[in-house]
Structure formats: structure tokens, C-alpha cells
Write a protein that binds this DNA or RNA. Sequence first.
DNA 1: TACTATTTAATTGTATGCAATCTAATTAAT
DNA 2: ATTAATTAGATTGCATACAATTAAATAGTA
Lengths: 150, 150
Amino acid sequence: MLSEDRYACLRLENQLCFPLYACAKEVVRRYKPILDELDITYTQYITMMALWEHRSLSLKDIGAMICLDSGTLTPLLKKLEEKGYVERSRDRDDERVLTVSVTEKGMDLRERALSVPGSVATCIPISPEEALILARILRRMMAEFSAQQQ
Amino acid sequence: MLSEDRYACLRLENQLCFPLYACAKEVVRRYKPILDELDITYTQYITMMALWEHRSLSLKDIGAMICLDSGTLTPLLKKLEEKGYVERSRDRDDERVLTVSVTEKGMDLRERALSVPGSVATCIPISPEEALILARILRRMMAEFSAQQQ
DNA sequence: TACTATTTAATTGTATGCAATCTAATTAAT
DNA sequence: ATTAATTAGATTGCATACAATTAAATAGTA
């Protein structure tokens, strides 16, 4: 027992990052059957969330908001365009910039998505009090991460 | 402003799941340069953690411990075998079962991994107090998720 | 025993994620 | 103005994730 002690830091049960990683996956899994009805994935859903709020954003701005780069967003936005929820076009003033805009159909999807947060909430086993604490800690951590980057 | 209120639940900033998702990714990203020196990925690292503790486990048991299925683990374990850290063999008593065992080289890796948790901790911007609270909430949530499943 | 159901991995297909590289457009510097 | 540096996306390659299906082995049952 004592001889194993030096490895305590490598035990799964002593990790903070592992439950974070596992919980995040589990939560996204809970979204799946709910988002299936809208024919979108979780990543597509948060992309639409960013767009619903701003109507039109560059790929770069979307990436900054939801922490994804062009390697993930380029194919994802093409799929959302195929589904008819967004339009992709080059900015007139700066041809490097890809402007992504929500279509009429994309805004209709917002109406159908209104019930999603409520449906998901019933599947996530956490009390409202703990949810608040969790959100506060995670948001603070994200803010610190952002401050680290530059 | 008031007319937008019904969409408040679809704002990114009002989500709990999004910071969870984003934080988990960010943390795994912090592991990368550290694990690169051991030539393993984060998923391979937690797989080895499970194996370091038990020396030998079935694929199913590993999956239960780190929340992954055979679709992810089968190719991952083959890679760990190629690297020489584990051995894969069929259980004599039950040929369906794949037994995964740590090799000598795999146990050597454990020594080299001893500094990983400390290195990662310096990159994760969270106070020890908040880390404890976070770990407690996430572990409780995982326990509840497990209880839901069956 | 023969048949059915269950269990365990492996396989297949789709969708991320992300580092690294590439290309084109724009900006800054000389 | 020309060259150099920067920026924004797209592309490539690798490694997950995971649902769904398949195949083989085992357990359960009539």
C-alpha cells in the first residue's frame, strides 16, 4: 500500500481532468436524441446558437466564440449550408473573410430549437445550485485560458 | 430587447453545457505538449492509467472505467500494442474477452509519467479550492449518469 | 441436445477536433 | 511601388468518439 503511494497522482480517481472530460462527453451524448429531431449535431447546434444571436458572422468570429478552428468549421459550415440553414459568401471588402449568414430556414430552426435547453436539462442530473457553481467555475476557467493564450 | 427574451435560453452565454464542453477540450489541449514527450495521446494516457492500476483488464472493463466503447478502444489498444506498452490476448476461459496487459515497457512509462499531473496542474488556471468543488460536482454527476443508464 | 438469447469485440460509417501546411488576400515596411 | 509579413480559410493527416451492425463465443432454456 505504502509502496504504491508515489503513483497516487496517476490514479484515475484522483484526477480532476478525467471527470471533466467524461462529463462533457456524457452531456453531449444526452443532446443527441434531442438534436436528432432537428437533424443537427451538438457542434452544429452551438454554431447555430452563435449565428442566431448575430445573424451574420465570419468563420473566424464563430471560431472565437465556440473555440473551434477552420479545420473543424470549414466542413461543418458546408454541411449547415447543404441543410439550408446558413449561406457562405466572401466578404466584398476583404476576400479572405468568409461571411456566414443565417437563412430564413435557419431562423425557423431557432423556433424549433426553443425546447432543446429544457429537454436537455431534464436529462442532466445536477441541482440548480450546483449548476450555478459549476457554470461559474468553468466560465472563470475559460476566461483564464483566454488570458493565457496571448 | 424584450422581443428577444424568449430566445434567452438559446444564448451561448446562458448555457451550462457549452463551458463544460469548451473547458474539457481546452484542458486536453494542455496535456498535448506534455504527453507528446511520452509519445501518447490523452485518451491513450487515461487508458494506461486504468491499466497501471490493474496490470491487466478486459477491453470491456477499460471501457467501463474510462467511458469508451470498442469502436474507440479497439484501434487505440492496437496502437498501444504497436508502441509496446500493452499486450492484447484472448481470455482462455472466454474467447470473447480481450485481455489487455501492461508490458515491462508499459510499466517503465509509468515512471516517466509521474511528472505529468504536476506539469498539467501548472497550466490549468483554477484554485485548489475550486478544483475540489469542481471535482466533487463532476463526480457526483458522473455517478448519477451511471445510475441513469440501467 | 438443439435452439435462442446474450455477451464481447471488431467493423463500418459519420462527425468531430486539431496541428501543420498551403494559398490567396491584405497590410506593413522599406 | 515592391517586397516582406500577416491574416483568413481551406486542406491534409491523424486520432478520437460513437451509433449501428456484424461475428463469434457463451449462457440459458425447452
